[in-house]
């Protein structure tokens, strides 16, 4: 079980729990504003862009080349950017805090 907190761009905070799937799927199922997941998680739409709160960056790990290339040209990109469809939910992510980029 992992607890994950989303902070949307208008400041709304939601904490959700899950054991499997991707962070994008969790957000879409719970209609977190700003995460649409249009492509279903195959790294082709960037509508699942989040900023990982700095203390958690080590736990979420590094993005793949393909993910980095996608992020590079997206709005609001910074060093904490990730595509949340590429974050698989595991115990390891318990407590994770994410800011929705859009």
């Amino acid at each position: 079980m992992a607890k994950i907190t989303f902070i949307t761009s208008d400041g709304e905070t939601t904490t959700l729990e899950a054991t499997s799937g991707s962070v994008m799927e969790l957000a879409v199922q719970n209609t977190i504003q700003g995460i649409d997941g249009d492509c279903g998680g195959v790294c082709s739409c960037a509508t699942c862009h989040v900023h990982v709160e700095p203390p958690f960056v080590e736990r979420t790990g590094e993005a793949s080349e393909i993910e980095k290339d996608m992020l590079e040209l997206d709005d609001n990109v910074n060093e904490f950017s990730r595509l949340s469809c590429q974050l698989a939910i595991t115990e390891e992510l318990d407590g994770l805090i994410l800011r929705v980029a859009k």
Binding site: C39, V42, C43, S44, C45, I66, L73
Partner: peptide, 20 residues
Amino acid sequence: RKLNPHLSFGFGHHKCLGAT
């Protein structure tokens, strides 16, 4: 295919509105 950054619907701000 797990990573599939295809461009069939375009890319950037003009990306296809009809994609949904």
